[in-house]
Design a protein around this nucleic acid. Structure first.
Lengths: 194, 194
DNA sequence: ACCTGAACACCGTTCAAGT
DNA sequence: ACCTGAACACCGTTCAAGT
């Protein structure tokens, strides 16, 4: 029986090339102009018709998710490194900073990510990287709550939102990174003393 | 001597009417679609040419600042109320919440505001409301540092950024406000226990 | 199976022409 | 002094026509 619906079909060679090319050019444009950049300009620089771009990535979210996939291995390496740190507080802190950097890769990325991370958005192509990262956060947080100093009432989803907000601030407050440093300090210690 | 450059000149009646009309319609569209809404649609619903809109508000920031001015009195009342609260910690907490609500009035407002609040952006029409609010924050924070429990290392600008980030999260995480509650808790107390 | 590019609807911004 | 709206350049998205 030929199950043409569910079986993996071998894509044509030019389609594969186009897909990779689109991702490469899109990454460059995301870097320069954020994830809201002109898709028409991406298609033009890739030397393809706009229809081809839409065929490969029907929505902007699909394209963003595709570009994010390019960072997957790198993040996985970092995750493995950090997971092996003995001090659970230090491990959690380093992981949160790694996630902040990951989310800060392109302007305008924090918004779609926190939206996709919310419950009931499993349909979004961006929910995949979100749930993966939140799971890791949950694990590291659980360890820090048990053997470290993390508060029991905090959840991994909370910390994901908090880190995304920091990433948002980072790309909106200009060049000086002192505001972001202060933000991290406040998130860690609160603005009140104990 | 007729100093036509610096003297205040009486605007024409239709210009005044148009200005008020633009602000009214813009506020409605900002509420429904955020501050990035179509200016052409605003002009059309106001029944004026697009050129007239640009004459009154040369940039989108000018229009946003104009609409924000509509909230000025209301915020001033709240500021006066809060300033008279005896407990400095409580006063600061209520003021931060009031600012968060103020910044949450329209989607997309937090971005321009934190940008305008940064040093060296005194040229932006949005820097006026920013500096006003940050000054109040500085005053209430100073009192909370002296006679309350606010940490000495925190500044009013820090808290403004933090509150703007919370407002940003509020408009990006969908309907449930539990994530924002958690964010506020973490900002107040940190994610680590003392 | 995949690609192309014209077509449509939309938007920001400017500016010559009006009153 | 102020308003109008055409004009220009740009963008997202779809879809008939090609290979």
């Amino acid at each position: 029986m030929q199950n043409t619906e569910t079986r993996e079909r071998k894509p044509r060679a030019d389609a594969l090339r186009n897909r990779a090319l689109i991702l490469e050019v899109a990454q460059k444009h995301f870097l320069e102009h954020g994830v809201g950049t002109s898709l028409e300009a991406v298609a033009k620089e890739a030397g393809i018709g706009t229809g081809t771009l839409y065929r490969h990535f029907p929505t902007r979210e699909d394209l963003v998710a595709g570009v994010l996939q390019l960072h997957a291995e790198e993040l996985e390496v970092k995750r493995a490194q950090i997971t092996s740190i003995a001090d659970p507080d230090e491990a959690l802190a380093q992981w949160l900073r790694a996630m902040e950097d990951y989310i800060s890769a392109y302007n305008g990325l924090p918004g779609p990510l926190v939206a996709a991370a919310q419950e009931g958005h499993k349909d979004s192509p961006l929910s995949v990287p979100c749930t993966t990262n939140i799971e890791t956060t949950n694990d590291l947080l659980a360890a820090a709550q048990k053997n470290g100093h993390a508060r029991a009432s905090v959840t991994g989803n909370d910390l994901f939102n908090v880190v995304a907000s920091t990433a948002w601030l980072r790309s909106n407050c200009g060049v000086a990174d002192v505001p972001v440093e202060s933000m991290r300090d406040i998130l860690t210690n609160g603005y009140n003393e104990s």
